[in-house]
């Protein structure tokens, strides 16, 4: 019983922070509510206003099942056939080219700047 109460408390905290972020967005901050909420939540954890053990399980649950939350939007692709087919070639190619470019630039630069490969000897402690 106690653990499910903990869980509900954690979800409650996260939802309140999201609503706060969304409110700030609505009154004019150009960054979306979810991202604002993320920054606020991080600051609150860092400043120990919110303790990790209050929200750990709730956040873990939301993140583990995040894919579920993307399903309705993805199913919506079936209605976008018309819009997509008119510029199909341009959209697909730009999507793939840009995806590969971002992956390569970020990955290679990341490998350069963020440390040696994990399987290299002495990779530990070189954060």
């Amino acid at each position: 019983m106690k653990t499910s109460l903990d869980f509900a408390l954690g979800v409650g905290i996260i939802v309140v922070i999201f609503l706060l972020g969304d409110f700030l967005h609505r009154i004019g901050v150009p960054v979306p509510g979810g991202v604002l909420g993320l920054l606020l939540f991080y600051a609150a954890l860092q400043l120990r206003i919110i303790r990790l053990e209050w929200v750990d399980r709730a956040a873990g649950f939301l993140l583990r099942h995040m894919v579920l939350l993307f399903i309705p939007l993805t199913v919506g692709l079936m209605d976008m056939g018309g819009v997509l087919s008119r510029q199909f070639g341009a959209i697909c190619l730009s999507l793939v080219v840009s995806f590969v470019a971002v992956l390569l630039v970020t990955g290679l630069l990341g490998q350069r700047l963020l440390g040696p490969p994990e399987d290299a000897p002495g990779a530990e402690g070189q954060l």
């Binding site: 996260i14 999201f18 979810g34």
Partner: peptide, 9 residues
């Protein structure tokens, strides 16, 4: 929205 916020954890 809340799941994005939860990424802070």
């Amino acid at each position: 929205g809340p799941a994005t916020v939860a990424l802070a954890v």
